[in-house]
Amino acid sequence: MPIAILSALAEEQNGLVHLLENAQQIRHAGRNFCRGKLHGQEVICALSGIGKVAAATTAAALIERFGAKAIVFTGVAGGLGDAVHVGHVVVARQYVQHDMDASPLFPRFEVPGYGRVVFDCDTALTNALLQAVQACVQQQAGRWTAELGLGAPQVHEGLIVSGDRFVSGSEEVAQLCQGLQRAGLQPLAVEMEGAAIAQVCADYGLPFAAMRSISDKADDAAHVDFPLFVQSIASRYAQAVIEELCKRL
Rank of each mutant, 00 (worst) to 15 (best):
A195C: 11
Q175H: 13
M192F: 02
G179V: 09
V190I: 14
E171V: 09
E191S: 08
L176Q: 08
L176D: 05
Q175M: 12
C177P: 00
A196D: 04
A198H: 03
S170Y: 09
G194H: 12
L180V: 12
I197G: 07
A189I: 07
E171T: 10
L188K: 09
L176A: 07
Q199F: 03
L180E: 08
R182C: 05
G194K: 11
E193Q: 08
L180Q: 12
E191G: 03
M192G: 03
Q199L: 13
E171L: 09
E191A: 04
Q181T: 15
L176R: 04
S168K: 11
G169A: 15
C177L: 05
G184P: 02
E171S: 09
Q199P: 03
I197Q: 09
G169Y: 11
A183C: 10
Q199H: 11
G179S: 12
G184T: 06
S168P: 00
E193Y: 06
Q175L: 13
Q178K: 15
A195L: 05
L185C: 05
A196Q: 01
S168N: 07
Q175C: 07
V173Q: 00
A174H: 09
L176T: 09
E172I: 03
Q186W: 13
E193V: 04
M192W: 04
A183P: 02
A195W: 02
A195Y: 04
Q178P: 02
C177E: 14
R182I: 08
Q199S: 06
E191N: 09
L185Y: 04
M192Q: 05
L188T: 13
A183Y: 01
S170M: 12
L188C: 08
E172W: 00
Q199I: 13
L188I: 10
Q175I: 11
S170N: 12
V173E: 01
G179C: 09
A174F: 09
Q178C: 14
Q175T: 13
E172F: 00
A189F: 08
Q175Y: 14
R182A: 12
A195S: 15
L185G: 01
A198M: 06
E172L: 07
E172G: 00
G184A: 01
Q175G: 13
S170L: 15
L176W: 10
G169H: 15
S170D: 14
A183E: 11
G194L: 09
P187G: 06
Q186C: 13
E171F: 00
G194A: 14
S170C: 06
L185V: 05
Q186G: 07
E193K: 02
V190F: 04
L176I: 13
Q178T: 14
M192I: 01
Q181F: 08
A196G: 06
S170G: 12
A189Q: 07
L185N: 06
G169E: 15
